[in-house]
Computed example of a mutant assay.
Amino acid sequence: MAAKLIIHSPDQQGRRRVRYDGVAIGVAHRPADVRAFLAAAGMENAEDVDLTDPDFAEWGRPRGVGTASLACLPVQVETSRGPPHPAGAERVIPR
């Protein structure tokens, strides 16, 4: 079974594109951003989801970098249209 949550490799600024169930839901700077996007997508108990469960989440990462590295990325506040998101997170607006 393929993971429903895809967290792509970080870009040059350390941001990771996030997809859930095939839909782009945001660009994360830290795990809390991913959980906030999941909650906004309607997932109940998103704050309790195990982001390290390979059956649920697939992480794209450069060799030697684990999921813990996402927690220490610098925060960049960017604005976008749509509902509020955690500081430093961007919302992807589907076209």
Score class of each variant (00 low, 15 high):
residue 48 D to Y: 09
residue 68 A to D: 15
residue 57 A to K: 04
residue 44 E to M: 07
residue 21 D to H: 08
residue 80 S to A: 13
residue 64 G to M: 06
residue 51 L to G: 09
residue 4 K to Q: 14
residue 95 R to E: 11
residue 82 G to W: 03
residue 42 G to C: 01
residue 14 G to Y: 04
residue 82 G to T: 07
residue 43 M to T: 02
residue 34 V to M: 01
residue 8 H to P: 05
residue 50 D to R: 10
residue 16 R to Q: 15
residue 90 E to M: 13
residue 24 A to Y: 03
residue 78 E to A: 13
residue 91 R to V: 08
residue 93 I to V: 14
residue 47 E to M: 08
residue 54 P to E: 10
residue 42 G to F: 00
residue 57 A to G: 06
residue 53 D to N: 15
residue 45 N to F: 07
residue 10 P to V: 11
residue 45 N to T: 03
residue 17 R to Q: 13
residue 79 T to A: 14
residue 31 P to E: 05
residue 5 L to W: 07
residue 64 G to F: 11
residue 19 R to M: 12
residue 16 R to H: 15
residue 42 G to L: 00
residue 60 G to Y: 07
residue 84 P to A: 07
residue 71 A to W: 09
residue 66 G to W: 06
residue 23 V to T: 12
residue 41 A to Q: 03
residue 77 V to E: 14
residue 64 G to E: 07
residue 19 R to S: 14
residue 43 M to L: 15
residue 41 A to R: 04
residue 78 E to R: 14
residue 63 R to H: 12
residue 7 I to D: 01
residue 9 S to F: 03
residue 86 P to R: 15
residue 63 R to F: 11
residue 37 F to V: 00
residue 42 G to I: 00
residue 82 G to L: 04
residue 85 H to M: 12
residue 87 A to V: 13
residue 17 R to Y: 04
residue 27 V to D: 02
residue 18 V to C: 02
residue 91 R to I: 02
residue 76 Q to R: 14
residue 11 D to N: 15
residue 82 G to D: 06
residue 55 D to I: 01
residue 34 V to P: 01
residue 12 Q to I: 11
residue 35 R to E: 04
residue 29 H to Y: 08
residue 92 V to Y: 10
residue 43 M to P: 00
residue 12 Q to H: 09
residue 44 E to G: 03
residue 3 A to D: 08
residue 53 D to V: 09
residue 93 I to G: 01
residue 33 D to G: 03
residue 81 R to C: 08
residue 89 A to K: 01
residue 36 A to V: 02
residue 70 L to P: 00
residue 62 P to N: 13
residue 83 P to W: 02
residue 27 V to R: 06
residue 92 V to W: 07
residue 19 R to P: 00
residue 46 A to H: 08
residue 58 E to P: 00
residue 8 H to N: 14
residue 60 G to W: 06
residue 2 A to E: 15
residue 31 P to L: 05
residue 34 V to A: 01
residue 30 R to D: 06
residue 79 T to N: 11
residue 24 A to I: 07
residue 91 R to L: 11
residue 61 R to M: 12
residue 74 P to M: 10
residue 20 Y to V: 01
residue 67 T to L: 10
residue 22 G to E: 08
residue 35 R to K: 15
residue 10 P to M: 10
residue 37 F to E: 00
residue 20 Y to C: 00
residue 94 P to N: 05
residue 25 I to D: 02
residue 82 G to Y: 04
residue 47 E to H: 09
residue 56 F to E: 03
residue 52 T to R: 11
residue 15 R to M: 10
residue 19 R to G: 01
residue 11 D to V: 08
residue 22 G to R: 09
residue 73 L to Y: 06
residue 59 W to S: 02
residue 78 E to C: 07
residue 81 R to V: 14
residue 67 T to K: 10
residue 90 E to W: 03
